[in-house]
Write a protein that binds this DNA or RNA. Structure first.
Lengths: 361, 361
DNA sequence: CTGAAAGCGCTAACAA
DNA sequence: TTGTTAGCGCTTTCAG
């Protein structure tokens, strides 16, 4: 005999019943307003009633509907987070920090990876607007002005990394590229390098320009005028790094060290060098930028300039939060400075043919 | 004279006015229902009216409020995506694929990284429930049963990778670990290896057990009984891989090849080997699992077992979508099989002391 | 301190 | 085909 389980013999909790604040109110013998207050921990609620409410909520395993809450309160408790390349390990590390802080503060985040595609970026922003994000962190190191307007026009608080317009409601995290890059150049110069190449990021990115400028300035500070052939444009990817190194290798005036705009580039450079049979750091030194986790285990471990993801995530969140919570724009006008710092590992050494006596066998 | 810009001399678009469907309706001289229909592209709307509506929408740059839509329609158009470690490059690659497909299909995604912490996981699920996700993809390669119940009880469609209960509304992406792992073992065996070690993932993960089982089985197929000392537990991280290799190195019966449960582990293994002065693949061969992007540029480039992130993302999304769109549970009962495939690069070769004549200098 | 009632912005019957 | 109306689940005045 086929025994069809009928709706009747279901477990006690009748899940079929629609569950909302009203159900809770009825079962706890209070008004829906009281339930709402209880859930929102309004302090004036009578302890006894609150307990009654909580009991019912727990028993029914009730979960309030954020959408309804957001709709009536006007607070979505959502932040957008725009990154350029989620597959570049720098960003997941940043996302992790941002998410953690956001969640701690009762926010959810909508993540989008633009992959440098303006069309995608535009769609992302649109979707964020539809979801009524309360702010967005634009961690793309560069942005198309028109897209920004979409957000700014609606007075959505924004935080940029590195570059962004100076308007009320818009915060900018200023990265001190020069500090770390100068340390890197000086480290190299102290080792005896003069011919220091630079693999930049995509030059349409403001950050790429800033990093390049910091390099040039740092070189000058050491009394070196960089040969233009030492500067080659990469794109922040493994492949870009490898291609850049290939170009560098074809150069007449071969550099003895190469400073890279990010770690992925540096890893690409390392790989190309490996492919060409050059040894790092014996034949050539290389320095990265970011200090992503795997930089510790490249071969050799990468000397790099650290830029703290956590610090960035924290600053970005704080900027957004203060804009949102304080209607007063001035309070939000804090300065956010991100430091960079050289981490010396093993991809840098004396230039070939010098200091042989000092070199570790 | 200080000229304070008064509200009056603002641009034509009076942004101060609250903008909703009603505003559009008024300006387009139609009812709000028509506006709603127009936006939702209901085909019965008169073309003329539709145009009028669109014109106003465009002129005012109106963006509908998803929350309100979701509230009334009962469709949040949100999927949750739970990963275990966003900083493991495998996951960003998966997220990217999932996001892309989701967006194409009008869904947004809520991403959470659990970091293997059950408490975090519980919170994530709770938050997803509050946001009324229509489904969640649990890409953690293992899950605490109780948490799952929270979701299942509410009949939220779920898709698991690799392991999950066989219940209606729950799809499982079956990964064929054995195929790729057998290829790897056979590749090694063909090269002359007999002592093949295995660095597993965290053994509480089902996937770790499956991979280990596939290894054992594949070894047996080659007529090899694995020495228990060849099997050591890792944790899918760089550090875990390094630690595992260290243990392996201390073993009496030293393996000549090591198969790793994922690429991060393999990179850790590579690094430890490098630190101990062993050469890969001359002294020891290593194989990874996942084929993350950087596996191409390790030194040497990593032989690894590919598991397509895109394929997984696609299958996961499809599973969820079909559960959601078709009330009929049976239609959703498709089988999802994920293949794995060996990619031979340069981290594998003959065991030391054999085939010297064949070895590339 | 608690409850009743008025919406938040939108969709979906149902009428017209 | 278009408009009217009743809510979706919740917060928030405003009385009591």
């Amino acid at each position: 005999m086929t025994e069809n389980p009928t709706p009747e013999n279901q477990p006690q909790n009748d899940a079929s019943e629609r569950m909302d604040i009203r159900t809770i109110a009825r079962l706890a013998n209070v008004s829906i307003a009281t339930v709402s207050r209880t859930i929102n921990r309004v302090p004036t609620v009578n302890t006894k009633m609150a307990k009654r409410v909580w009991d019912v909520i727990e028993k029914l395993d009730f979960v309030p509907n954020t959408q309804a809450r957001a709709l009536v309160s006007g607070r979505s408790k959502l932040f957008g987070l725009l990154v350029s390349e989620i597959t570049n390990p720098f960003f997941p590390e940043l996302i992790q920090g941002f998410e953690e802080i956001a969640v701690e503060n009762g926010y959810e985040i909508l993540i989008s990876s633009t992959n440098h595609d303006p069309k995608r970026m535009s769609h992302c922003i649109r979707r964020m607007l539809e979801r009524k994000v309360e702010g967005v962190a634009i961690m793309t190191f560069g942005i198309e002005e028109p897209l920004l307007d979409q957000l700014a026009k609606r007075k959505v608080p924004l935080v940029f990394i590195d570059v962004g317009p100076d308007r009320p409601g818009i915060s900018v995290l200023k990265v001190d590229y020069h500090h770390g890059i100068r340390q890197a150049v000086q480290h190299l110069a102290a080792l005896g390098h003069r011919k220091i190449a630079f693999v930049s990021g995509p030059m349409q990115l403001h950050s790429a320009q800033s990093r390049l400028a910091a390099y040039t300035r740092s070189m000058n500070e050491c009394g070196i005028v960089p040969d233009p052939s030492w500067i080659v444009e990469g794109d922040h990817t493994l492949e870009g790094g490898a291609a850049a190194m290939e170009k560098l290798l074809a150069q007449e005036n071969l550099a003895t060290a190469v400073l890279c705009s990010n770690d992925m580039t540096a890893i690409g450079v390392l790989h190309k060098l490996y492919r060409t049979g050059k040894r790092v750091p014996d034949d050539i030194s290389v320095i990265g930028f970011d200090d992503i986790h795997i930089a510790e285990v490249t071969m050799p471990p990468l000397t790099t300039i650290q830029m703290s993801r956590f610090e960035i995530a924290k600053a970005a969140f704080d900027a957004l939060q203060s804009q949102v919570e304080s209607p007063n724009a001035l309070i939000g006008k804090r300065e956010f400075n991100i430091k960079t710092e050289l981490i010396v590992r093993e991809s840098t050494s004396y230039p070939r043919g010098t200091m042989e006596h000092l070199r570790k066998k």
